[in-house]
Amino acid sequence: MARKSLTDVVADDLLDRIVAGEFLPDSLVPGELELSSQHEVSRMTVREAMKTLVAQRILRVERGRGTFVNPLGSWGSLNAVLRAVSEGEDDAVVAVQLIELRRMLETGACELAAARISEDDLERLGEQLSLMKAAHEAADVPAFVSSDLTFHDIILQASGNIFVAVLFEPLHRILESRRAETSQVPQIQSNAIAMHEAILNALTTGQPEAARVAMDNHMSQTLDDLKSYVLRSQ
């Protein structure tokens, strides 16, 4: 793995401090002189680090006033947003918004996959569904989550749209974490199995509209389960 440049080190450290809540949205961050002293680097290095965060819309420069932190919703870096979310940024809101994002992307991907999916992919989906059922019976949450994620990954790949898979790749770690939380509830597992069966049946028929509806129903059930079993208890 390549070593980080000094610029990257300074940028990552400042982002970590922002994510940790040291600098809240719309607050002023330290100037070049202070940061260069803290990191024992040149002001040019600090300036380049700040430019990196400004380009990602994490920071904004107000002429004559200084450099300020932007609200999370303004950030233009998915990886930075995921770092902030992982540190506990309004967990309930983030959980709901993540399902909303999945609903927008996965229903379309499932619709595309219905006309493009191979027999081999359908067989692999069936295998993952069987593994989900076995994990449910064995109360093996990690195995259940792994099969659940793999089931969805197969559909994303089968959509034939390279952008869908690329968009979802950075989300994998946080999706795994969220699934591990929700899949602790046996009833959520049961509901997920039923929905995955419906999705597989729709894909097997090769009917795009039926596949889209089946995935949309799954996303609706997932959101309902989140609100009923997880968020309600927080």
Results as ranks from 00 to 15, higher is better:
T205M: 04
V164E: 01
V54R: 11
G73F: 09
F151L: 05
A138E: 10
L33E: 12
G160H: 04
R47N: 11
N161C: 07
D8K: 11
D90K: 12
Q187D: 08
L28N: 09
A214M: 03
D13Q: 06
R17T: 04
V145M: 03
V85M: 08
R43S: 06
V19C: 05
A210F: 07
R232G: 00
P142M: 03
N201K: 09
I162P: 05
L131H: 07
V10Q: 06
A139L: 08
F163M: 14
N191L: 05
L24G: 02
I18T: 00
V29P: 09
G66A: 08
S36K: 04
T205I: 07
E176Y: 07
T204M: 05
S177R: 13
V85H: 01
R116N: 15
L223D: 00
E89V: 15
A92Q: 10
E100R: 13
R83D: 07
V141C: 02
L35A: 04
Q189W: 03
L223P: 00
E89G: 02
I199F: 02
Q234P: 00
D90W: 11
S130N: 06
L33T: 14
N191W: 11
Q207V: 04
G31W: 14
L6S: 13
V141G: 05
M1G: 15
F68T: 13
G66F: 10
A180E: 09
G88P: 04
V145D: 01
I162T: 14
A135I: 08
L167F: 15
S36R: 10
A158R: 07
D140V: 06
V29F: 12
